[in-house]
C-alpha cells in the first residue's frame, strides 16, 4: 500500500476524469441509489415511530435516546460491527445508513406534529374527524414542511456517510476517495469529494423544490407575526 510519495504530483489531472468518465457516472448513480434507499427506508421507519412518540409522550425520551445512541456510534465502527454479521453487502451499508437517519427524522416528525396549531386540531375534531383522518388530512400535511426539513438534513448527511461505505466495498463516489488514499493519487480524491458535495447540494435543492410544489399553501400565505 505504501508507494513513493511524490511531492510533484499535481493536485488534479483532468485526463484521468475523461478516461474514467463511465466509472464516474456509474458510481454517481450508485451513490444516489444508496442514499435514496437509506432515506426512504429511514422515513418509513421514522414517521410511524415519530407519530407514536408524539402521541405517547413517555415513549419520546427512550426513542430519541436510542436513536441518539446509534447516531453517536462512529460510522466506521458501526459498519465494521455489521460486517461481522451481514458481510460486505449492500444490506450492511443500508442498515448502518438507515440507523443514522433515524435521530434527525424522528426529531423532525415530532417537532412538526407539535407545531400543528391546537385550534386547527380542535376544529377538525369538532367537524367529526376520526383520529386517523385527523392524522392523515390535518396533522401530517401541516407537519410536512418540518418533516421535509428533516429529510433534507438526513439526505445531505447520508450522502457524506455513503463515502465511508467504500471501506466495506460499496461507497459510490467514496470508492474514488479510498482509491486515491490507497494510491497517494489526489485526482480521484478531488473528484470523489467535489462530486459528493455537488450531489448533496443538488439533492437539497431538488427536495426543497419538491416540498414547495407539494405545499402550495405554505408559500402564498405567510403566517401573521407571532402566530404559532
Amino acid at each position: 500500500m505504501m508507494l513513493a510519495q511524490d511531492t510533484r504530483e499535481p493536485f488534479f489531472r483532468p485526463e484521468w476524469v475523461s478516461r474514467n468518465a463511465d466509472r464516474i457516472v456509474e458510481q454517481l448513480i450508485e451513490h444516489a441509489y444508496l442514499t435514496s434507499i437509506a432515506v426512504g427506508v429511514g422515513s418509513l421507519i421514522a414517521i410511524p415511530v415519530g407519530v407514536y412518540a408524539y402521541r405517547h409522550r413517555r415513549a419520546y425520551v427512550p426513542v430519541t435516546w436510542l436513536a441518539g445512541f446509534l447516531y453517536t456510534i462512529p460510522s466506521l465502527a458501526l459498519f465494521a460491527f455489521l460486517t461481522t454479521y451481514t458481510g460486505l453487502t449492500t444490506l450492511t451499508a443500508e442498515i448502518g445508513l438507515v440507523s443514522y437517519t433515524l435521530l434527525i427524522l424522528i426529531r423532525n416528525v415530532v417537532a412538526g406534529l407539535e407545531g400543528v396549531p391546537r385550534d386547527t386540531r380542535e376544529a377538525a375534531r369538532a367537524m367529526g374527524y376520526t383520529p386517523r383522518q385527523l392524522l392523515w388530512r390535518v396533522e401530517l400535511p401541516l407537519a410536512f414542511p418540518v418533516i421535509m426539513a428533516g429529510i433534507r438534513v438526513a439526505t445531505v448527511t447520508i450522502i457524506g456517510l455513503v463515502t465511508v461505505t467504500s471501506l466495506i466495498g460499496k461507497g459510490g463516489l467514496g470508492k474514488f476517495i479510498l482509491q486515491g488514499i490507497q494510491r497517494f493519487f489526489s485526482t480521484p480524491i478531488v473528484v470523489g469529494a467535489v462530486l459528493s458535495v455537488l450531489l448533496a447540494i443538488l439533492a437539497d435543492v431538488l427536495l426543497l423544490g419538491l416540498q414547495r410544489a407539494l405545499t402550495p399553501w405554505a408559500r402564498s400565505r405567510p403566517r401573521p407575526e407571532g402566530a404559532r
Partner: peptide, 12 residues
Amino acid sequence: IPSFAILGLALP
C-alpha cells in the same frame, strides 16, 4: 463535505 473526503483531501 463528507469527513471521509476531508481526510482524503488532507493527504495530498
